[in-house]
Simulated assay, not measured.
Amino acid sequence: MTYQQYPPHGGYPPPGAYPPPGMARQPNGATGIIAGILAILGGLWFLAGVAFHVIELSHFTISFLVAGAVLDFLTAALLLSGGILLLLRKGAGRVLTVVGAGATLGFVALAFVLRAIGAGFYFTYSGVTLQFGVGLLLIVVLAPAIATLVLALIPPTARWVAAKKQPAGFVQPSHLGYPPPHQQGPPPGQW
């Protein structure tokens, strides 16, 4: 005859193995919060780019300045709205942040191509030449865009957005194996 082995503690998990009733564990939102803040900062950066292009347009009429202003405005709109919605734990915020960060990476790639063919990043006004080097572009735009994209795409951010804030109601401990209070009673067919 064999005896059935029972787990320690009378079949219950050890104390502290589960959160107390009503306190379901929420996912950590650090990645989502950092992605949202980086998206907002990136959006402000591109909004400043729009202002720069508008100032330049007041002195010159160059078609790529118009295109740059429009692209900066669209990227700023995507990143600002995405970052704000991401901090509010909305799924659309995550999508807008990913699209905005991806657009930023595409624009940086376009800037490298333009630099390679000689279109350059320099503007001359009143004898003062501003030149934007590759190093500035890498540090100020590319690195935060990559970080924003990665943080918005990783699973912890998705779990944090999906979990949202749960009301502080009672949660029936599922580890005890009992049915919820509204379903208690004998199983069907036993009465």
Rank of each mutant, 00 (worst) to 15 (best):
Ala147Thr: 03
Pro167Met: 07
Leu74Gln: 08
Ala76Ser: 11
Val134Asn: 11
Ile40Val: 14
Leu130Gln: 13
Arg94Leu: 06
Gly22Thr: 01
Phe107Tyr: 12
Leu142His: 07
Phe60Val: 05
Thr61Tyr: 14
Phe132Ile: 15
Ile55Asn: 14
Ile139Arg: 09
Val66Lys: 05
Lys165Asp: 10
Val99Ile: 15
Arg89Ile: 00
Pro167Cys: 04
Pro156Met: 06
Tyr3Lys: 10
Val70Gly: 02
Ala39Asp: 04
Gly93Cys: 02
Val161Gly: 01
Met23His: 14
Gly102Asp: 02
Phe123Arg: 12
Leu85Lys: 09
Thr2Leu: 07
Leu110Ala: 11
Arg94Val: 01
Gln4Cys: 00
Leu136Trp: 10
Lys90Ala: 05
Leu138Arg: 02
Val171Met: 05
Trp45Lys: 09
Val98Ile: 14
Thr129Tyr: 13
Ile55Lys: 13
Gly100Arg: 00
Ala39Glu: 04
His175Phe: 15
Tyr178Ser: 13
Pro156Cys: 05
Val98Ser: 04
Ala103Trp: 15
Phe112Ile: 08
Ala143Val: 13
Leu138Asp: 06
Ala163Tyr: 14
Gln131Arg: 13
Gly177Thr: 06
Phe123Leu: 12
Ile139Thr: 09
Leu114Thr: 05
Ala111Cys: 09
Lys90Met: 04
Thr104Ser: 10
Gln190Ile: 04
Ile139Leu: 13
Ile139Ser: 11
Pro27Val: 04
Leu142Thr: 06
Val150Gln: 05
Ala76Ile: 03
Asn28Ser: 08
Glu56Gly: 15
Leu110Thr: 09
Pro181Met: 12
Val150Asn: 03
Leu79Arg: 00
Ile154Asn: 12
Val50Met: 03
Val161Pro: 00
Ser126His: 14
Leu114Arg: 08
Arg89Asn: 08
Gly22Asp: 04
Ala147Cys: 03
Trp160Gln: 01
Ala163Phe: 14
Leu86Asn: 01
Ile84Asn: 03
Gly127Pro: 07
Gly100Gln: 00
Gly169Lys: 08
Ala147Trp: 03
Pro21Met: 13
Leu80Asp: 00
Thr61Phe: 15
Pro173Lys: 11
Leu96Ile: 01
Ile40Lys: 00
His53Gln: 09
Arg115Ser: 11
Pro187His: 10
Tyr18Gly: 02
Leu47Glu: 07
Ile40Gly: 00
Pro173Val: 11
Ala143Glu: 04
Tyr125Lys: 09
Gln26Cys: 00
Val161Thr: 02
Phe60Asn: 07
Ala67Arg: 06
Gln4Glu: 06
Gln183Ala: 13
Ser63Gly: 13
Gly120Val: 07
Pro186Met: 08
Ala30Ser: 12
Ser63Arg: 13
Ala111Tyr: 14
Leu78Thr: 03
Ser58Asp: 12
Gly22Ile: 01
Pro167Arg: 10
Ser58Met: 14
Arg159Ile: 02
Val54Glu: 09
Gly10Val: 01
Gly49Asn: 07
Val54Asp: 06
Val140Ser: 11
Lys90Pro: 02
Val161Trp: 01
Tyr178Arg: 12
Pro188Leu: 09
Pro156Tyr: 14
Gly93Glu: 02
Tyr178Gln: 13
Leu110Glu: 06
His59Phe: 15
